[in-house]
Amino acid sequence: MFNNSNILEPLFWIIMGGLYTVFIIGLAMWLKDMKVKMNWWKWSLTLLWFILLSITVAGGFTLIGENELRAGLLFMAVPGAVIIVAGVALGRFLLRNTNEEKDN
């Protein structure tokens, strides 16, 4: 982010680490309040999905930074659409289990 600053660059990644931690703690609370039972593989799938989303966003903006606006937008739109659909499917899957539990 701040490639030529050896003060701001590490600071940026420390802040990013903080943001990810807050995000995961917040997400855990959301899921708990929604009565979603998580185990290791459900967490792995959820985090993998978020990592893929992050990589797609980073990839798209990397290409935009390289002056390839069209390629960057398409990079986010095409794999991005697949990831969003996968995210919706994953969300439904996680929530369906809770609904089944509620029905029982």
Binding site: F2, N3, F12, V57, A58, G60, F61, T62, I64
Partner: peptide, 13 residues
């Protein structure tokens, strides 16, 4: 964090 990776990506490019 998504905005952060967007910024980091842009700057890498």
């Amino acid at each position: 964090s998504l905005a952060g990776v967007a910024g980091a990506g842009y700057s890498a490019g």
